[in-house]
Computed example of a mutant assay.
Amino acid sequence: MNNILTLNNIIFSYEVDQPEVKNAVEDVSFTVTEGEWIAIVGHNGSGKSTIARIINGLLFPQSGDVTVFGKLMNEDNLWSIRTELGMVFQNPDNQFVGATVQDDVAFALENNGVPYEDMVARVHQSLAQVKMEQFLNHEPQHLSGGQKQRVAIAGALALRPKLLILDEATSMLDPQGRQEVLDIVRKLRDDTGLTVLSITHDLEEAILADRILFMNQGRKFAEGQPSEIFALGDELVELGLDLPFSMKMAKMLQEKGIQLDGTHMSDEELVENLWISNFKK
């Protein structure tokens, strides 16, 4: 598999002239390979959003380097690298610039000089990918939160990125909107092999990833598959993260003496394991 992204010994401080102030990111290294879904999780102030800004070139580290698509990121190639990145941010309302949904999706394509006929085709294709093609001429402000974020994802997909970055993209949505967005991203990843990097504090979202990086106080505290990270259990809670509902419920059931075997990271797994362990004959 090709390496899409590599961070090598990254150090970043917002207070360079104050060495006594702790670095926002301290000696962080990791690699994302083509087709992976990686989740970077951590409490507020853990360094995960700073890492997102470094990956997108909004910040440059004081030490270490970032390699994207085989290119060592610098000020000379930053803009060409960004054309291959898709970014979806926290607040969908802050991302809209067009009067209609199709105008908004086309905005970045126009700025990149995409020919009109190709641009129209990309707008329709990307909106179809997120199941929003019937909203072409709708005004964005009249959409639900989940629909707005799906349009934001369509705008990123229209650029045909090699890497889609979700920076707390579901944190302001209600449960239904959040599920809509995650279902769309999961289907896109499964259907197209899109590489996804999600920055989140929500472990329910992180469950979907192939691999999780757990940040704490600017450092990479742990890295592994979701089952390996969630095995930390109460340690995650102590460091400011909330366990998924299914894991909290499983713990309560076990404390009441109810037997549970296997994993229970999702509601479906919990129900199945509860049935197999206690009721199936």
Rank of each mutant, 00 (worst) to 15 (best):
M73K: 14
I55P: 02
D167L: 08
R53T: 04
W79Q: 11
D191A: 14
R219K: 15
V271R: 11
L159E: 00
L157W: 00
W79V: 08
A231P: 04
D103I: 03
R211V: 11
I199G: 09
L194C: 06
V130P: 00
M172Q: 09
N112K: 09
Q125T: 14
Y14K: 04
V181A: 01
G193K: 12
N23H: 15
R82C: 00
Q125K: 15
G113T: 07
S246L: 07
L197N: 09
T200M: 12
N273V: 05
R211N: 14
E117M: 12
G57L: 07
N91C: 05
T192N: 10
M132E: 07
D118A: 15
E269I: 04
L188W: 01
I184T: 15
N94K: 15
N111V: 12
S171M: 07
A128V: 07
R82P: 02
G47R: 02
A250G: 15
K281R: 14
H138R: 13
M1W: 10
I4M: 13
D65V: 05
I11F: 14
S144Y: 09
I258D: 02
D234N: 14
E238L: 13
Q141F: 15
L232D: 09
L72M: 14
T31S: 11
L166Y: 03
P19Y: 08
L232K: 14
A231M: 06
F96K: 07
